[in-house]
Amino acid sequence: MRFTCAESTLDLDFAHCVVAGWTGRNPDAIQHHIDELAAIGVAPPSTVPLYYRVSAGLLTQARSLQFVGENTSGEVEPLVVRAGGKTYLGLASDHTDRELEAHSVALSKQVCAKPCASELWDFEEVADRLDALELRSWIKENGDWVLYQEGTLSAMRPMAELMEGAALEALSGKGPAAMLGGTLGVTSGGVRPASEFRMEMRDPETGRTITHGYSIKTLPAVA
């Protein structure tokens, strides 16, 4: 996969990918997300946070994706990349099969591609203000873009803590490693599928943004 970081180009062949789940810093916010997913049949986690290992090949920069069934949806998340002794910050969507999630969260993470933006930031350049970074996502409903998620990284556990929990540095010793760092609750209307998903990470100090969007084509679930 090819990424840009400032004036540099990075070609990364990921060896590892971890999806960090239930990463909220506020216990009430965690419970809110647990309740959101319980409403669609997902059992509560055994502990928080949890770290789901998924195939590194699921990461993609494609803008048109295909998923089986009509019950998949995206989640805006920070993407931490560790490669070549350096750490980078980017943007990804933990697209998940919600029907399968009710059976197994781990399997639901594995069956869906994880779209990510092609731009990365040097982690050290924003390390002193990570909590202030803003995340937003929108979904296309009835032909209109609707705000789906909104908040800052302060809603999540510190990225350094999550990176340690995911053993990201150790993993990166065997090839480039990526971690999706958790998500925000839905602004209103609950977790739901959509035909298109758009996401953004913004640094309010500089005004810089990383953006990505993708469309979803539903494939028939054949029994």
Rank of each mutant, 00 (worst) to 15 (best):
M1Q: 11
C5T: 14
A6I: 01
T9Y: 02
L10P: 08
D13G: 07
V19T: 05
R25Y: 05
R25L: 14
N26R: 15
N26C: 15
I30H: 13
H32K: 15
H32F: 14
A39F: 10
A39D: 15
V48H: 07
L50K: 01
S55K: 03
G57V: 02
L59A: 03
T60V: 09
Q66R: 15
G69R: 09
G69N: 12
E75F: 08
P78C: 08
L79F: 08
V80G: 02
V81I: 15
T87N: 02
S93H: 05
D94R: 03
D97M: 08
R98W: 13
L100R: 14
A102V: 06
S104M: 11
S104P: 06
V105G: 07
L107C: 10
S108C: 07
Q110L: 12
P115E: 04
A117D: 04
E124F: 00
A127F: 01
A127T: 01
A127R: 11
L130M: 15
D131T: 11
A132F: 00
L133D: 08
I139T: 13
K140M: 14
E141C: 08
G143F: 05
W145V: 05
V146C: 04
Q149S: 07
M156S: 06
R157M: 12
P158L: 05
P158Y: 03
M163L: 11
M163D: 05
E164H: 08
K174Q: 13
K174I: 02
G175P: 06
M179G: 03
G181D: 05
T183L: 10
T183A: 10
L184P: 09
G185N: 15
G189H: 07
E196P: 00
R198N: 12
E200S: 12
E200D: 04
M201G: 00
D203L: 01
T209I: 10
Y214E: 04
I216S: 10
K217D: 15
